[in-house]
Amino acid sequence: MLGGSILIEVQNLTKRYGEHVALDNVSFKVKKGEVLGFLGPNGAGKSTTMNIITGYLSATEGSAKIDGIDILENPIEAKKKIGYLPEIPPLYMDMTVKEYLKFVCELKKIKKKDIPETLDNIGKLVKVNDVKNRLIKNLSKGYKQRVGLAQALIGSPDVLILDEPTVGLDPKQIIEIRKLVKDLSKEHTVILSSHILSEVSAVCDRVMIINKGKLVASDTPENLAKKITTINKISVRIKGPKNDILNMIKNIEGVKLAEIDRVREAGSIDIMIESEEDIDIRESVFNICKDNNYPIIQMKAADMTLEDIFLEVTGQRKGGATYVSDIK
């Protein structure tokens, strides 16, 4: 985590829609230069939090301050410091990219003589210069997202708030956008939300997990992973007949649970083994397989991914660890 001054300060944020509580007493701080990831299922309150910080919605209770400026008390000044890419990029379909970005420049009160330079720089950065004369409605989803990002960057705001910036993009575009966000994080403080875990762990310095409007965890991706990693769950791939192997494994002392996962390699089976606490059964598994002459193709600890942590802390876990390879 980088040292530095606090740029965003959110205190006791609560948002109610009638009886429904969308956000329940959420507080956090973001330091300058930090990349903060919001993680949570759809409807957890990620977008609501972002909408409140950016001044689009008002909180029922609590306050949000950008660089010490309260978004409700001095909205114009606070908004100057924010670039926001909402979940649905706010694009005017009947404008060309150039017209649109020029409009945003005017909206953000960029001086007229600086507009061409700003447009050129940002166009280069997010790589939209080659489509600048096309109508936005004719652009692909990836380009639309980039134009949305370009819009957020105009006026070089201190804080960038990106709501699910990679949703609906293909894997190649996702990687591009992630790389872009990483580059941007050198000069901007970034808050981004996602329900894809690998994304958050790839780009963020710190992850906040939100569920049902509540903040459930906040730490670095590594620390979160460390917290719950255990050695009593392993995954093995063994070559041989399915039932024999399963019975053999189940008979090892200390095995609590053994399940067959789907077959990934012909002639072999993948088994998920959960042992009693504090028993490392890896050696026993090796020995018994050796004695019965069933070759072990692969053995690894079913280490906790962010997905597991997420399910664990949000209480949606249904038993059994998840394989690393199952995560997109």
């Binding site: 689009y56 909205p75 114009i76 909402p86 649905i88 706010p90 005017y92 945003v104 909206l107 009160k109």
Partner: peptide, 14 residues
């Protein structure tokens, strides 16, 4: 409807 008001209302414009 198109949520473009999110752009305008989060810009430094009253």
């Amino acid at each position: 409807k198109l949520k473009t008001d999110q752009l305008i209302l989060t810009s430094p414009v009253s």
